[in-house]
Amino acid sequence: MKEDGRFKTNIPWLIFLTAIIVLPIIVRSNYIVSVMFFVAIYGMLSIGMGLLMGQAGLFSLAHPTWFGLGAYIPGILSARGIIPPLPGIFVGAICVALIAYIVGAPVLRLRGFYLACATFAIILIAQVVAAQLTNLTGGPEGLVGIPALSLGGFVFKTDLHFYYLSWAFCLGCYWFCSNLINSRIGCAMKSFHDSEVASQSIGVNVAKYKLQIFILTAVMASFAGSIFCFYLRFAVPDSFGFPLLVELLMMIIIGGVGHLRGPLTGTFVVLWLTELIHGYLGKIFPVMTSEVDAIFFGILIIIVLIFMPRGLTGWIDQLINLGRKLYDRFRGSTT
C-alpha cells in the first residue's frame, strides 16, 4: 500500500530481473542453467507456501499434491494425444483450481495443526492414487511418452528454453503475489492472520479469502508442475510426496516468510547448497550423499531457527536496519 504507479521504479527488482536474463548468456554452463531452472520451479511452490503460511496464516501442506496434479493432468492428456501440451497446462491449472476448491471448502474450516494434518493426508492419498491407477498414470514406474512442449512452431528442447520459460512464470507469480500482498486483499489476509474476530467485525469474509488464496497458490503450484513434467518428459508419484514437502518447508524456514523474497531466497540457498554438498562430498562419501544432506540441513535449520527466527531475509533486513541506525548516529555525532 505504498507506491502509486503500476510499474514502480524498483532498483533491486530491475537488477534481479537483468541478472536472471543475462545469467545464461554470461555463464554458458548447462549445469548452472539447469539448477537455476529448478530454483524457479521450486520457487513458484515456495512462494505460494510462503504466502499461505506467512501472510494468511494457513498451515496447509498440500502443495506437493497440486504440483503433482499439475504434472500428471497435462502429462496424461498429452501422452494420450487428447490435448496438446500447451493448452494442457491451462486445462491442468483449471482442474487443479476445481479440485482445490472442492478440497479447500471443507478443509479450510480447520485451523492450525488440524489443517496441517488434513492437508498432509491429501498428499498421502494423492500419492497412493497416483501409484495405484496404473492404467492412467503408469503407476510407480512413472508416466512415459509425454510429448515435447511447443508454442506455435517453437519447441522447448534445451535447458535454456526451459530456464526462460520457468523464470517467466516464476517472476510472474512473484509479481502477482507481491501486488496482492500490498493490496486490499493482502491486508485482509494479514488481518485474519492477526485477529480473526476483528477481521470479521469489519466485514472481511474470512472463509472466502482463505479459499481464494488457497486456490491461487494451488494454481501456481500446478503451473510449476506442468513445466517440470514437460522438462523431464516423465512423472513418478515419488517426486510429489513427503520428501518434496520437507524440502519446501526447509526453503521457507531458511528463507523466512515475512516477505515474498524469503521463500525465493530460501529456494536458491537450499538448492545450491544441495548441489555443493553433492559436488564436494560426493567424492568423499560416494554412497551416503542423501544422509549427509539430511544431517547438514537438519543442523542448518536448527541454527536458522535459533539465530535468525525470521529466516535469512529477516536477518539481513535486521542487519540493514542496524547499519542504517549506526550510520545515522555517526552522522549525527559528526555534524
Partner: peptide, 24 residues
C-alpha cells in the same frame, strides 16, 4: 484486537474493507 503486523494507517485501511470492491 488490533492487527499487530500492520501500521496504524493500514489498520484503519483494513477497516474500510467493506467500502471497496477490488477482486483478486
Amino acid at each position: 484486537e488490533l492487527f499487530s503486523s500492520m501500521t496504524v494507517l493500514e489498520n484503519a485501511m483494513v477497516g474500510c474493507h467493506t467500502g471497496s470492491r477490488t477482486g483478486m
